[in-house]
Design a protein around this nucleic acid. Structure first.
Length: 600
RNA sequence: GGUUCCGUAGCUCAGCUGGAUAGAGCAACAGCCUUCUAAGCUGUGGGUCCCAGGUUCGAAUCCUGGCGGAAUCACCA
């Protein structure tokens, strides 16, 4: 969507001026506009240093000439000032007022019309042998938010989940359940299904370590060695073989236990507010990819070794050789991912396939993409690994073996409990019904958690300290939610008290104060921020923008009265300003997967 | 050891397609509720942007080399 924005007009005009006055073309790259910093007068700043070599005059002279011409040519540019090589342009207050008028009734302000690409976003992709933890939470929130942002930026988006429901890890849980479970079920124990299965996985590890310990002593071998030959491990491998042969008894245990896990996951997903358009299961896809490999062999882009294993030689792409088929002809993880990439491409005809997967798999995705390139697949370049950083604890990485894993359900419970405690201390919900209270605490607690995670640049590792609970004051989700609730409260009062004018024609744009103008400028940037977040796949960009907006509004709110402003025209203007702010907060937070309350 | 990513205030993080005097929040201290929600607002203190070179009119941002941290380099997933 190419809008005739003032920015475009300025770029266009400057380009023309330079061509006609100095006789040179300038590339668009050199023509960069930025927001004027608040310590200077102006709205938009053009850096003129790049043109100095064309103008052969001083930066000040160049800037002055450009400034004069721009004021002459563009109605909305009313004045300018030059500081060193910076040309600060002031737009007419009417320009900002026109913007507000044009958008104040636009419910979907900031949302771009569909017309972009078809994008598949894979996220979550859990194993079915243990419950979701904080790492998964980051993954899910990121994946969900990125998909919402991509939609808002005009793309068609499909959310997919690839569940790892097979393999040795499930067999471990199954084995201990069969041996020691005595038929325990979620119903009989009252445990959440994924937790119950996770417990048997832990039990396997515990028992295995015991076995391996004694075995190591008896035979004088290393622990690692002993683990491999411990009876429990051999039994688990035997179970996997049975599974692969589709042994009915094994299949039925597998199906039952996975069903428990899905029931548990569904609850957790629902609480997190994420959902998928399509769920793939590895048990259906793990054999895919072989044909692709054989095809590659025929084309001669892959190699077969003497033991008949198949490899991709990526040494010409600065990587290693990578195994694709074992000597016995079975596939590995990479093979499967080649297959699922093809499947996904066939299913969605996607222009872009995004994988939200931790940065520990950077190498894997690098290889995946390069093998697909070797195979000459058209979608090789469509693949994008959205590689996010680990969530670390003060003592380092979470380790399930050391019990330092932060469980997703427990974390959400804690957040909601904290929201309850804080809200009740503040006495904000005394007139709420029990149901309203529950809903509000849920919104605030989840808002705090989601914002805490999403405000950090996805690529970076982030720290979570369980000892100090996530903040509800300052640069947080609840502050933004609170700002929304404040505005809604005003709007409710306004609706009751009087009918506001909506033409704003009475307002003299010149009366606009600095705070109002700054707020307007931030609101104005919203569509661009949505687009930028989409291009960067970064909810953090949007999250930080929304905080800036909330802070700016709170300053404005503090300094000026909206409803008690005696001049009705100004009062209406401020009301519209507040209304648009609330709307941007609501839709922006929505793109982060965060709800905002009407009252808090 | 190779490769990739990261290093900004005491702590958690913005800023990074090169642009003006590097910003927030938390924590500390000092203020602001007879006026639209104080989960707010205002102020004070707090910085060798890891180090050293280089490119440039200009470097937290780009390049090179160090130092420190993380991940990864399986016929595991």
């Amino acid at each position: 969507m190419m809008m005739m924005t003032i920015e475009n007009n300025i770029v266009q005009a400057v380009s023309e001026i330079i061509t006609s006055v100095y006789g040179h073309q300038v590339s668009e790259r050199e023509l960069l506009l930025q927001k004027t910093r608040k310590e200077f007068v102006g709205d938009i700043t053009l850096v003129v240093f790049p043109f100095v070599r064309l103008s052969k005059t001083s930066p000040e002279q160049t800037a002055t000439l450009l400034g004069d011409e721009l004021v002459k040519r563009l109605e909305d540019v009313t004045s300018y000032n030059v500081i060193k090589g910076f040309l600060n342009l002031s737009l007419s207050p009417d320009y900002w007022l026109r913007f507000l008028k044009s958008q104040m009734n636009n419910e979907s302000f900031g949302m771009w019309p569909v017309g972009g690409q078809t994008v598949v976003v894979e996220f979550s992709s859990p194993n079915t042998n243990k419950p979701l933890h904080l790492g998964h939470v980051r993954n899910n929130l990121l994946g969900y938010s990125v998909s919402r942002i991509l939609e808002a930026a005009g793309n068609r988006v499909a959310r997919v989940n690839l569940v790892n429901d097979r393999g040795i890890h499930i067999c471990k849980s199954m084995l201990t359940w069969i041996k020691f479970g005595n038929g325990e079920t979620p119903q009989s124990s009252g445990k959440k299904g994924d937790k119950l299965v996770g417990d048997y996985y832990v039990m396997f590890e515990t028992e295995l370590r015991k076995q391996a310990g004694t075995l190591a002593q008896e035979r004088g071998i290393g622990e690692d060695e002993a683990r491999k030959i411990a009876p429990l491990m051999l039994e688990a491998q035997e179970l996997l073989r049975k599974w692969e042969l589709k042994d009915p008894e094994t299949m039925s245990v597998w199906e039952m236990m996975n069903a428990w896990v899905y029931e548990g996951f569904d609850k957790t997903y629902a609480r997190m507010g994420v959902h998928f358009d399509k769920i793939y299961y590895e048990s259906d896809t793990y054999l895919l990819g072989k044909e692709l490999v054989l095809e590659g062999l025929e084309k001669g882009v892959l190699i077969r070794k003497e033991d008949s294993s198949v490899w991709a030689d990526l040494t010409d792409m600065k990587l290693d050789q990578k195994l694709l088929l074992r000597s016995d002809g079975t596939s590995v993880y990479m093979t499967q991912d080649l297959g699922t990439a093809q499947l996904r491409y066939d299913d969605f005809k996607a222009d872009k396939m995004i994988y939200v997967v931790g940065n520990e798999q950077n190498y894997h995705f690098d290889v995946l993409q390069k093998v697909l390139k070797k195979l000459d697949k058209p979608y090789a370049d469509a693949i994008y690994h959205l590689s996010y950083g680990m969530v670390e604890l003060p003592e380092g990485k979470m380790k399930s073996r050391e019990g330092t894993v932060v469980d997703a359900d427990e974390l959400m419970d804690e957040m909601i409990a904290t929201a309850r405690r804080m809200t009740e201390e503040l006495g904000k919900t005394d007139d709420f019904s029990a149901e309203e209270k529950e809903k509000l605490y849920n919104i605030i607690g989840m808002g705090a958690l989601k914002y805490f995670i999403l405000k950090v640049d996805p690529r970076k590792n982030m720290l979570f300290n369980p000892a100090e609970s996530i903040d509800f004051n300052g640069h947080t989700g609840p502050l933004i939610q609170y700002t929304h609730a404040r505005i809604r409260s005003i709007l409710r009062t306004a609706d009751d008290a009087r009918i506001e004018k909506t033409d704003l024609d009475v307002v003299n744009a010149g009366d606009m104060n600095e705070k109002e103008k700054r707020l307007l400028k931030i609101l104005y940037a919203f569509p661009e921020v949505v687009q930028e977040s989409a291009v960067e796949y970064s909810p953090a960009t949007l999250a930080n923008y929304l905080y800036d907006l909330a802070r700016e509004f709170n300053q404005f709110y503090h300094d000026y009265s909206i409803l008690n402003e005696p001049n009705l025209a100004i009062s209406d203007f401020r009301l519209q300003l507040a209304r648009l702010t609330a709307r941007v907060i609501k839709s922006g937070m929505g793109l982060l997967g965060i709800e905002v309350p009407e009252k808090m």
